Simulated assay, not measured.
Amino acid sequence: MLELDNLDIDEKVDYLTNTQLGDNVEAINQIVDLISSTNDARVRNSGALALMTATSKQDEIKKSLFNILKKHDDSDNFGTLVYACSGFDFSNEVKYFINLALTGNAEVRMSTGSVLKKMKMLSDNDLDSAMKEADKIATSGKEFSKEDYFNLISFLKSKMN
């Protein structure tokens, strides 16, 4: 495994972009550590996408991605990180991802749709309707309200039963 600490940002991004992890546990651990500690969005995003190619340590990767996502969900550069979460089932975190769908930028909203689809709680038509509603709320220019959130949650719950 390459010693990533000795690389500059562009070299790290290039390496991560071209990495296929498979079941290389050492490389998986190294990338999880790297993206957990970096402040560079390009490195974090490239590492998150590289983790999507891993075939082992899925539970640890899922937990790490979610923790990193929560740490950086106030930045403008985390849509790719949300997308990387689409490789995992986050059914226990549905409210968190719905909140992202309502409050995130266009890339985050689109990526959140991929995560919600993975949950398989809704049909594609129901999810598309919910995401259109979230997009309408998010782009309306009005302040996001509790009522908007509860209306979308109610819609989703009605479709899950």
Results as ranks from 00 to 15, higher is better:
96 Y>W: 14
113 G>F: 01
51 L>E: 00
71 K>G: 04
43 V>G: 15
54 A>M: 01
38 T>K: 13
56 S>V: 10
60 E>K: 14
43 V>C: 13
93 E>Q: 12
100 L>P: 04
82 V>N: 07
34 L>R: 04
91 S>E: 07
97 F>L: 12
52 M>V: 08
98 I>N: 05
96 Y>T: 14
47 G>R: 02
60 E>A: 13
23 D>I: 04
27 A>D: 08
79 G>E: 09
51 L>Y: 08
103 T>M: 08
38 T>E: 09
96 Y>F: 15
40 D>G: 11
28 I>M: 05
93 E>I: 02
97 F>T: 12
54 A>V: 01
81 L>G: 15
42 R>F: 03
67 N>R: 15
110 M>L: 05
83 Y>G: 07
56 S>C: 11
106 A>C: 02
45 N>E: 12
30 Q>V: 01
81 L>N: 13
67 N>A: 14
103 T>S: 15
29 N>Y: 04
63 K>Y: 10
47 G>I: 01
98 I>E: 02
58 Q>R: 13
104 G>I: 02
91 S>G: 15
44 R>W: 02
84 A>Q: 04
61 I>R: 07
62 K>D: 12
35 I>L: 11
106 A>Q: 09
114 S>L: 01
76 D>W: 07
83 Y>A: 11
39 N>C: 09
32 V>G: 01
60 E>N: 14
85 C>H: 04
68 I>E: 05
44 R>Q: 14
109 R>C: 04
111 S>M: 03
103 T>R: 12
37 S>H: 11
111 S>I: 01
85 C>Y: 01
112 T>V: 09
103 T>D: 14
57 K>L: 11
88 F>C: 13
30 Q>I: 00
102 L>H: 04
101 A>T: 07
74 D>A: 13
65 L>G: 12
83 Y>T: 09
36 S>M: 10
87 G>S: 11
48 A>G: 15
72 H>I: 04
93 E>D: 12
81 L>Y: 11
79 G>S: 15
90 F>C: 09
41 A>I: 04
50 A>E: 02
